[in-house]
């Protein structure tokens, strides 16, 4: 797996599909190929009421990616420094082996070029200190992206502090 964590806060997600459209728009993808997909099920009755349930599926960026092993031209690459799995378009011949071996069929075909496209976490954006397009412009900030340990540290910190605030030890939330 890559060094990053990608999450969808389903309490905020309104199933609007902005993530998919931002992804495609930023990469100028033609109709057909979808890199990140928001998967939803029809309105469902759950205990608390009616809910629309969603999950976001880009690419898992596997630690030992089948797609990389099988690629005959070396076009599918796992970047050493952070584990992002991406396609070098120059080398891709469009044989689609990567799609066949991927248990989730994440790689897609760009039908205008005949080559493979896949989620690369918007590598160029990450290298520029930004976040992937889908996360950056998510309509409701439901998608988040980051380094798991940094993320965990923040959550632990705020949880820990909140327990102390509740104990009425004279500690204010911002201490």
């Amino acid at each position: 797996m890559s060094n990053y964590i990608f999450r969808l806060d389903t309490r905020r997600c309104i199933n609007c599909k902005a993530c998919e459209v931002h992804c495609k728009s930023s990469k100028f993808l033609p109709p057909g190929a979808k890199l990140g997909v928001l998967i939803t099920v029809r309105p469902t009755q759950v205990v608390k009421g009616r809910r629309i349930v969603a999950a976001f599926a880009p690419c898992f960026h596997c630690a030992k990616p089948w797609c990389v092993s099988v690629c005959p031209t070396g076009a599918m690459i796992r970047r050493e420094k952070d584990g992002i799995v991406y396609v070098n378009k120059e080398l891709c011949v469009g044989c689609k082996s990567c799609i066949v071996v991927c248990p989730w069929h994440f790689p897609q075909v760009d039908e205008t070029s005949g080559k493979i496209v896949k989620c690369d976490y918007c590598m160029d954006r990450i290298d520029a200190g930004l976040k992937p397009a889908c996360v950056t412009a998510c309509s409701v900030h439901a998608l988040s992206f980051g380094k798991p340990n940094e993320d965990a540290a923040k959550v632990r910190d705020s949880f820990g502090k909140s327990t102390m605030v509740n104990k009425d030890w004279g500690i204010k939330p911002n201490d």
């Binding site: 609007c16 599909k17 902005a18 998919e20 459209v21 931002h22 495609k24 728009s25 930023s26 100028f28 397009a133 950056t136 412009a137 998510c138 309509s139 409701v140 900030h141």
Partner: peptide, 25 residues
């Protein structure tokens, strides 16, 4: 190249709906 919500406007913070994302296409 990429269109997103205004990062500084209150309540927006970069967010943009899918219709907005369709502007470049």
């Amino acid at each position: 190249r990429f269109v997103m919500g205004n990062l500084y406007a209150s309540g927006i913070n970069g967010a943009l709906c899918p219709r907005g994302a369709g502007a470049i296409s």
